[in-house]
Design a protein around this nucleic acid. Structure first.
Length: 586
RNA sequence: GCACUCAUAGCUCAGUAGGAUAGAGCGGCCGCCUCCUAAGCGGCAGGUCAGAGGUUCGAAUCCUCUUGGGUGCACCA
């Protein structure tokens, strides 16, 4: 919406005061810091040098030219303030267009410009937990962030493929097989799979300290697994499946389903071909027994392709995977949602691809994120300082459940146990999801229970609460037969509180939704959307607080209902994009 | 040692193609439910944008240096 208005104003400026091209005007146009100063502004400072006049005089000059003929329908007035020329938009015009546009977007759940992206495949690799290891809050970051990005790309019209690059290969499986044969217990495995696997894995490391023979056995077992020996393969398959079942439980709570679970084991067999290819292209060099690709001209450290014992390494796997994915999907963009510590690794991988002549290297992106840590320091599995995602979700849901119950009693709301459970689940999980998405992704998240379970202010529950407020009004309106699907905004209303400053703030916030989505895509940063939604919700809550919609006269009530319906749809859509379920009541 | 990254209110954070009086949430204090859900709304207090230079009409934003955190630097992923 804003872009469109900027275009219009820029054109108008160019026609009447052709000091600049329309596109140059458009780029200059900014937003005044406070609403009473106007809706759009042209800073005239950069024109000063060329016109050899002080900025305020230029503003006056341009205003004079604009005043010489009638304003277009979308401008109410213009004002000069210092070196700024400020524009006040016609609120009725803008309001009608914005509501109309928002209703179209939310109904189709598709961005306005979605068509131009259709057919463009965007791969998003995220979550990617290790088999046989617990799913802790650290994994949650990649999972939640990747899911939100995938949703947003999809909304923007891209064809999204969700990849879960499972950590299902490597010497740790040799260790696991050895440990299982020595200490494994089928009953315990069935009862609590990950825990049993983790227990024997930890025991392996404990005992391996005193018994180096174990490590040797582990390597042998992994070799056997790689060679396809049936016993080892069957065990590996079993561990993989059972782990995946566990992960799926969490994914379902988060509303996530992947298109592809090919992990390291899938890509491993592809590596030899890639190594040959790199050798043929003359990129491989011997160094201390290992095969490497030098990246000096990229001022990066060399990338190891083969270890000195001839075995493969994660870099070669990621290179093979990228090539495979390009052949299979011919992607437009290939996104890796992986922690920031691996930044250098991905720079190397992309650089090797580039050197090998793959133009698609420029379409590969590492989307990094910060650490989840405790106030005391890092989370570490070894020292038992871990928080399992499921436990965190349970805590949040339990707390929410208590609040829902208290609310229902206090307000005399008739609610079944089942409904309360469902609400608590959605709001509790939503609170956790939102904490991963509301700030810049590269920031660390300091984990404090009291903060993460605080549902006041800028939180997921705040957004869900706003939605349920909207729906409550709409429900009542429906019951009183006040709400018709045909209800349309009258284009000539501006009496009463209609489109007063408070409602205008709601409309202006609503108009910035697509800008936020675009920015989220450009920077692979869903927090732009999160923050936009908070701004929308805040403006609506003020409106809600100031004006009793259902008790207003017909014209005002209709306006309030339309606004409420649009806000409900917009916030619901936004929440869904973030991976959070809106709720009817809470 | 080299590289990357960050430093904004007591706390958690917004704010980049340089723009008007640097914003929000939490916490603190004070108000608002006979009225659509108070998980809400309003008000007050709170700042040398780490420090020092520089670039210019103008710098939290760009450049240099200093200080202080975080991360990464070949056979783990």
């Amino acid at each position: 919406m804003n872009m469109m208005v900027r275009e219009l104003i820029a054109k108008w400026l160019h026609q009447n005061a052709p000091y600049l091209e329309a596109s140059e005007y458009r780029n200059l146009i900014a937003f005044p810091p406070r609403p009473e100063m106007g809706d759009y502004a042209l800073p005239c400072f950069q024109l000063a040098a060329g016109l050899r006049k002080p900025p305020p005089q230029i503003a006056t000059d341009i205003a004079g030219k604009l005043n010489s003929s009638a304003y277009p329908e979308y401008v109410d007035k213009i004002e000069i303030q210092g070196g700024y020329l400020n524009f006040f938009i016609n609120r009725n015009w803008f309001c009608n267009l914005t509501i109309d546009l928002t209703e179209r977007i939310t109904e189709k759940k598709r961005a306005t410009a979605a068509d131009e992206n259709s057919g463009r495949v965007v791969l998003v690799e995220y979550s990617s937990p290790n088999i046989a290891k617990p799913f802790h809050v650290g994994h949650a970051f990649s999972t939640v962030l990747g899911q939100a990005l995938a949703n947003i790309y999809s909304f923007a019209g891209y064809e999204v493929v969700r990849l879960n690059h499972l950590g299902d290969y490597g010497t740790q499986f040799g260790k696991l097989i050895v440990a299982w044969e020595k200490w494994g217990n089928e009953e315990r495995l069935q009862a609590d799979p990950i825990n049993e696997l983790l227990t024997i894995y930890v025991r392996f490391h404990d005992e391996a300290k005193d018994d180096p023979q174990l490590e040797i056995e582990a390597r042998e077992q992994f070799r056997a697994l790689e060679e396809g020996s049936p016993k080892q393969f069957a065990l590996w398959k079993k561990f993989r499946e059972i782990s995946l079942q566990e992960f799926t439980r969490v994914y379902e709570r988060l509303g996530i389903a992947f298109d592809d679970y090919s992990g390291e084991s899938f890509y491993s067999p592809l590596i030899p071909g890639v190594v040959d290819e790199l050798a043929e292209k003359g990129l491989l060099e011997d160094s201390e027994g290992a095969k490497i690709v030098r990246l000096d001209d990229e001022s990066l450290p060399p990338c190891i392709i083969l270890k000195s014992d001839g075995s493969t390494i994660y870099a070669s796997r990621d290179i093979a995977a990228a090539i495979y994915r390009y052949d299979k999907w011919n992607f437009f963009k290939n996104i890796y949602v992986v922690g920031l510590p691996q930044k250098l690794h991905f720079q190397q991988v992309f650089a090797v691809l580039d050197k090998a002549g793959y133009a698609m290297a420029k379409d590969c992106r590492h989307v990094g994120f910060g650490l989840v840590r405790l106030p005391e320091g890092k989370l570490s599995t070894r020292e038992g300082e871990v928080i399992y995602l499921e436990n965190l979700l349970d805590e949040a849901v339990e707390k929410t459940r208590a609040m829902v119950l208290a609310n229902a009693e206090q307000r005399n709301i008739d609610m079944t146990e089942t409904e309360m459970d469902a609400i608590a689940e959605n709001v509790g999980v939503g609170a956790i999801v939102f904490t991963f998405l509301c700030n810049g992704r590269e920031r660390d998240i300091v984990f404090r229970w009291e903060d993460i379970l605080d549902f006041d202010g800028d939180t997921g529950p705040y957004l869900q609460y706003t939605v349920s407020r909207c729906r409550s009004i709409l429900r009542r309106a429906e019951e009183a037969d006040l709400l018709h699907s045909t209800l349309k905004l009258d284009s000539h209303i501006d009496d009463g509180y209609l489109i007063g400053d408070v409602a205008w703030a709601v409309i202006s916030a609503m108009a910035q939704f697509e800008r936020a989505v675009n920015q989220a895509i450009e920077e692979n940063e869903p927090s732009h959307l999160s923050r936009q939604l908070l701004a929308v919700a805040r403006s609506y809550n003020k409106f809600y607080n100031d004006y009793p919609i259902l008790r207003a006269d017909t014209q005002d009530r209709n306006f309030g209902l339309i606004l409420t319906r649009t806000i409900d749809n917009l916030l619901s859509l936004g929440l869904e994009l973030l991976g959070i379920a809106p709720v009817e009541r809470m």
